[in-house]
């Protein structure tokens, strides 16, 4: 339980920086005068050596590949992670390239229930994803821009050429 709490604290701290790991004292979340504050692990200590993306945020996929993290399917860690190899190409992207969503990448870190059904319905055509919602911390923005890479680099997600040459 304590480990889960610690991971939770670290995730909050990760969420509070854009490019660099900030200290717990300065993250605007933790109370440095709190009784248990000294027992918390600093993000730099835990995550300092983790692989980073070009914008300075942590590359969780690489961290997983390098076995620096070992995601749990539940709190006690007695379950097995179930990775689902299913790619979705999302076409309603206007003049932007289509979005390739890899279930494989996401389910290697998360369980299905993390997203389905509160964030995304597992139903074709029913998830009206848009950038405003993402920037407001909804839909993909629950993680992206918070604990995973943000929206600065469009091509991270919009990476499948579309067939909309007519609007050029």
């Amino acid at each position: 339980m304590f480990k889960v709490l610690m991971i939770g604290c670290l995730m909050i701290s990760v969420s509070s920086f854009a490019a660099e790991l900030t200290t717990l004292k300065n993250d605007g979340i933790h109370d440095a005068n709190g009784a248990g504050f000294s027992k918390l692990q600093e993000p730099k200590e835990a995550l300092g050596d983790f692989p980073k993306r070009t914008d300075g945020t942590i590359n969780w996929v690489k961290a997983l590949d390098q076995k620096l993290i070992s995601p749990r399917s539940n709190k006690v860690g007695d379950g097995k992670m179930t990775s689902v190899n299913l790619d979705l190409i999302l076409k309603n992207t206007g003049s932007m390239p289509y979005v390739l969503f890899s279930h494989k990448v996401h389910t290697s870190i998360l369980t299905c229930a993390n997203c389905h059904i509160d964030i995304f319905l597992p139903k074709q055509g029913s998830n009206f994803i848009n950038m405003n919602n993402i920037m407001a911390g909804e839909q993909c923005g629950v993680c992206h821009g918070a604990v995973a890479f943000g929206i600065q680099d469009c091509a991270e997600c919009h990476n499948v050429p579309s067939d909309k040459g007519d609007l050029r």
């Binding site: 299913l86 309603n92 074709q124 998830n127």
Partner: peptide, 8 residues
């Protein structure tokens, strides 16, 4: 599988 999805 790779599925192509459009909004309904």
């Amino acid at each position: 599988q790779t599925l192509v999805r459009s909004l309904d």
